[in-house]
Amino acid sequence: MSEALREPWDSLRRQREAASFGMWIYVSSEALLFAGLILAFAANRFLHPEAFAAAGRETNVIYGTVNTLVLLTSSLTMAVGAEAARARLRTLALRALGATLVLGLAFLVIKGFEWREDILQHLVPGPGFKLDNPETQIFFALYWIMTALHGLHLTGGLGAVGWLSWQAWHDERPLRSPAFEAVALYWHLVDIVWVFLYPLLYLGGRT
């Protein structure tokens, strides 16, 4: 079982601090990545209000809402997992992380179905697009980009959680490792981003 303390640190407390501090900075950077996209969305929505309203009505609010709930719960389980790991409650930690994995995968699966439906409904910008007002294509351009990028981030998160759980499972990573906390932070970011996307993409046209 490898020792959790690494160069250049001389106390685990400090190292843990660093892990979460560094992750905070990275997370704020990531947040600005999505902020840029959301800004582009907002600008276009301001330019073409009714096109965006019309397009917004085409997204599938059922899938969207279910996914929101799934992701929020996953954040909960992730938090539990990280805390449990910190408190060295091995089984609880492993269970919680497992649950997080399942929920994350569930999100992607549901999203997959939604994407499939969107494609069948010709909601992919380009010739033969479902709506005739060309401006609606901008909405869906951003819809695809943002959901895809978010999906990518989620996949990354899944990878990290999976890897951590696997290591913890085989006792290759001490539960005291700050990595759990860091990954949890990242997971919450991915979650929060979705909390912003959900109203923009699914509720916009429906209020």
């Binding site: 900075i25 999505f34 902020a35 840029g36 582009a40 901008i138 869906f140 695809w144």
Partner: peptide, 25 residues
């Protein structure tokens, strides 16, 4: 760097998406 670069990434990704998948932003 940390606060400005992601915005560049975002906008260039939009360009990439438009060229690669014809997503017109």
């Amino acid at each position: 760097i940390v606060l400005a670069t992601p915005v560049l990434a975002a906008v260039l990704l939009l360009v990439v998406a438009e060229r690669a998948f014809g997503l017109p932003v």
